[in-house]
Simulated assay, not measured.
Amino acid sequence: MSLDRRQLIAAGIAGAGVGTTTAAAAQAVAPPDPTETVRLWPDGAPGGEGVTVTPVVVERSTDPAYRDRFAQYTTDPLLTVVRPARPNGASLLLIPGGGYRWAVVDKEGLDVARVFAAAGVTCYVLRYRLPADGWAAGPDTPLQDAQRALRLVRARAAAEGLAPTRVAVLGASAGGHLAGLLAARTDATYAAVDSADALPHRPDLTVLLYPVVTLSDPFAHAGSRAQLLGPAPTDAAIAAWSLEQMDWRGAAPTILIHALDDEPVPPENSLMLLETLRRNEVAAEAHLFHEGGHGFGVRLIAGKPAEAWPALVLGFGQRQGWIGDPG
């Protein structure tokens, strides 16, 4: 790999706006947003006849050194492209969390993308539609966007001289549940739009960061379950949408990252899925950190052992043939 662990950590801290206590750091401002975006659905997202929501993007940070936005009520989903200085041929679709109530923009999106771009990976941050906003596809709505996004990333890789068979997905929290659906499910959830939809929609490598896995108590994230399936889902629906109960045969190599002190999404989520992956003979690796809580991304674990997770992902990806040295 082109960057060692210290360089990756430094890139993550710089990208997320974390600094020291010096006067220069006190004047730091968040890096500008990338300007390259890709609309998923040029003629409009499918099944929106009953949708009446108005999109909003909310800023939660009061510190100019970093941004912490979330997108809610998205109607025109898009990809934001974060390009490396020296592409190594690998691409990464990032699916941030938000409990299926909104989609985080920075913490598990652009901040993380900057770290992987520093290692030569071409990154795409997904802003996806949400299941409770009135879309005809209901709980399949965000998966429609994820499948379409993965196919577009694969098509762009082929067109740009990158490797169309080295397209990974990284999902965090509820975005990890969505990334897991993308990896596990083989059925297409929408009618083809263009030639990109002839390409495979399952990733070539899957990274799940403190993922929502099970929708069954006692380890379910109740908020994600309610947003996805409604306030009183049936036992059958809960089973059908729990990742650990799905058929993962033929899925891509998968790496799981979790903190043992994660209360909103307990680490049993990753442990349950790890057992399923082993049973289905999927190449898998799991890293459990003593501390980190939930939703740490890259900024909130600076100086802690869990800050090593991007380097661990890159090492796993290299061993699985996803990432190499920049050309």
Score class of each variant (00 low, 15 high):
A103W: 00
R60W: 13
Q7S: 14
A222Y: 11
G99V: 09
I13M: 12
R39V: 15
R319A: 15
T141D: 07
A168E: 01
A188S: 13
H294W: 07
Q320G: 04
A14V: 15
P305S: 00
R101L: 13
S216I: 08
P84G: 12
L92N: 10
A240Q: 10
S91T: 09
T62D: 13
D68Q: 15
A308L: 10
Q144W: 02
N88D: 13
G44D: 03
P87S: 11
A283M: 14
G98Y: 08
G295M: 02
A45L: 05
A71F: 00
D187L: 11
A192T: 05
L205K: 02
A10T: 02
L199C: 08
A25V: 10
L314G: 07
Y128M: 06
V212K: 07
A179S: 02
L209P: 05
D145W: 01
V169S: 13
R69S: 10
L150T: 08
V282M: 06
R166W: 07
R151I: 04
D63F: 15
T122G: 09
D235M: 09
V18W: 14
T35W: 01
G109N: 00
V57C: 09
G295E: 01
L215N: 09
A220V: 14
A184T: 06
P31V: 06
E108D: 00
H287L: 10
L205H: 06
G180N: 04
V121E: 05
Q318P: 03
A28P: 03
A308G: 03
A220T: 13
D145E: 09
L79F: 12
A118L: 04
T186K: 14
A191Y: 06
V18Y: 14
D204N: 13
E275N: 15
P326R: 02
W322F: 02
P305L: 00
D261S: 08
